[in-house]
Design a binder for these strands. Structure first.
Length: 469
RNA sequence: GCUCCGUUGGUGUAGUCCGGCCAAUCAUUUCGGCCUUUCGAGCCGAUGACCUGGGUUCAAAUCCCAGACGGAGCACCA
């Protein structure tokens, strides 16, 4: 099987579907898959030189290593050779009609005057194309199919055209005569011995077009499946490489890994495992209708993967400070993970006052249980320690909330899909390594990104990326 | 306009080829309950779907016809 990306930028989440499915099938059935960059349009689909590696990097994140990697722009001579062979068989002709003129004839099922050129002329004109002797638009090579075919999309399609703009890859920069996708991909799929093709419904006519070339060569066409488009819920940004790219350029997004961008780099930075994406994608199947992928299903897969190994911490968003009274313990020791006592406990100094989230502020005279610390009653603007035991929570009228000490907490900026959220985390969070995952209790999972200090070397701030609830 | 393709709960999916075992599977979501010092995990439960209309048949999600709705192609893009 093959994954044939157009190297025009890092991948968005939708791109993960192809490697997820073919990679999973390869592993399951002992198959083979390659990545083939179909980079045969240096102009309107101009390749981005950084995208080749960015895509391979995204693939690695998803957990797959291709069995081989090709670039169509390395294989021009191969395509020329096959075109020459096709011309010998009378299966192609050079044509200098303008696009509109040909389209008109084609839609009426009428051949253009170039269709019956003698082979010698076609041969030499094609060589002139290869030598770059025509300008863009002057001459194309068409595959001779059936000019009266009932589907106008299949009639005498273009196999090669001239492009004046040099290819950005130095190795390919001298070429001016470029194959169209249907020719290039059709030839490559056969030569690379691809047995199964999966592609989008936008290419549903491709197999039928390419079948004409396969018939000329006597090749057998691979099995082909067309699938619909994937949409993601939960994002404001359209899942389109060019849209995302523009937003980054305009400064609306920080980069390809901005948490608001529906890209693989973004999910990676948020601490979502590639496997979770793969599992969710494979679950979509390969139906021809368009599908909506719920981010919640990626989150559910990810939660399964990380919950057991992720330690718990406290984070209070936009905290409100309340003084403590009644001599509570000096230190709280909630477990790092409630299901794994052996991992030990956290050491949170309590101090004179704590911060709580606005939603958790108790009513006057109400009792509240600070998780890992104990029961308090809210009296005269102070949280008075009552020393009651956990039974008061079990009885049901005391809410359990998370908290942080007002004095020694760590400022945190948590980047989310809805923008940045500021808050304070328990002191231990300041010592976590970059890339570590945490579950902020009652808030959700997050990945620790880095610890920043401002230019004066003063205030520290921990930057975390919100993963999911 | 011409040509393809699709339509099962909020979302995804199984079943459709070879009609009966489908008063329709599984997952996720939502909502309850239990448990729990998390709104997590686990356990239990609930809500919720065969696009419409004809036809064939003892029997239709499944086969046939028509329609509606949706998607795609008709590029010197991929």
């Amino acid at each position: 099987m093959r994954c044939a990306p157009n190297p025009n930028g890092p991948w968005h989440v939708g791109h993960a579907r192809m490697p997820a499915v073919i990679g999973t099938y390869r592993d399951r059935y002992d198959g083979w898959f390659c990545v083939r960059f179909d980079d045969t349009d240096p102009e309107t689909k101009r390749p981005d030189l950084e995208a080749y590696d960015a895509i391979l990097d995204d693939l690695d994140y998803l957990g797959f290593e291709p069995d081989a990697t090709y670039r169509a722009s390395d294989r021009l001579e191969t395509y020329y050779d096959h075109a020459r062979e096709l011309i010998e068989m009378g299966g192609a002709y050079t044509c200098s009609c303008s696009g509109e003129a040909f389209s008109e004839l084609k839609n009426n099922g009428e051949p253009c005057p170039h269709r019956d050129k003698d082979g010698e002329t076609v041969r030499s004109e094609f060589e002139e194309m290869i030598d770059g002797e025509y300008e863009s638009g002057e001459m194309v090579l068409r595959v001779k199919t059936d000019i009266e075919h009932k589907n106008p999309a299949l009639r005498d399609w273009v196999a090669f055209r001239m492009i004046d703009t040099p290819h950005p890859r130095e190795e390919a920069s001298e070429y001016r005569c470029w194959p169209m996708l249907d020719f290039q991909s059709g030839v490559d799929d056969h030569l690379l011995e691809v047995t199964h093709i999966i592609r989008g419904i936008d290419l549903q006519d491709s197999a039928k077009r390419q079948q004409f070339v396969y018939d000329y060569f006597g090749w057998e066409y691979p099995e082909v499946i067309h699938w619909g488009h994937v949409q993601l819920d939960a994002y404001d940004v359209k899942m389109s490489t060019s849209t995302i790219s523009e937003l980054i350029e305009q400064g609306e997004l920080d980069g390809w890994d901005d948490p608001r961008a529906p890209t693989l780099k973004s999910l990676r930075r948020r601490g979502i495992r590639g496997d979770a994406i793969v599992d969710a994608m494979v679950g979509l199947g390969t139906s021809t209708s368009d599908v909506d992928l719920a981010m919640s299903s990626i989150y559910a897969e990810n939660r399964d993967l990380i919950d057991e190994e992720t330690d718990r911490r406290f984070l209070v968003r936009e905290g409100n400070q309340l003084p403590l009274g009644g001599s509570p313990p000096d230190e709280a020791n909630p477990p790092l993970h409630p299901n794994h006592e052996d991992r030990g406990v956290r050491e949170i100094p309590v101090g004179d006052s704590v911060m709580l989230e606005s939603d958790d502020l108790p009513q006057r005279e109400a009792r509240i249980w600070l998780k890992g610390l104990g029961c308090f009653q809210f009296t005269r603007d102070t949280l008075q320690y009552t020393g009651e035991d956990i039974d008061v929570v079990r009885e049901g009228d005391v809410d359990v909330v998370h908290w942080v000490p007002a004095d020694e907490s760590v400022p945190v900026r948590m980047r989310t899909m809805e923008g940045d959220v500021r808050g304070h985390a328990e002191p231990g969070v300041g010592n976590l390594d970059s890339d570590e995952m945490v579950q902020f209790e009652r808030v959700g999972f997050a990945r620790i990104d880095r610890h920043e200090s401002d230019d004066e070397g003063g205030a520290e701030e921990t930057v975390a990326y919100y993963t999911h609830p």
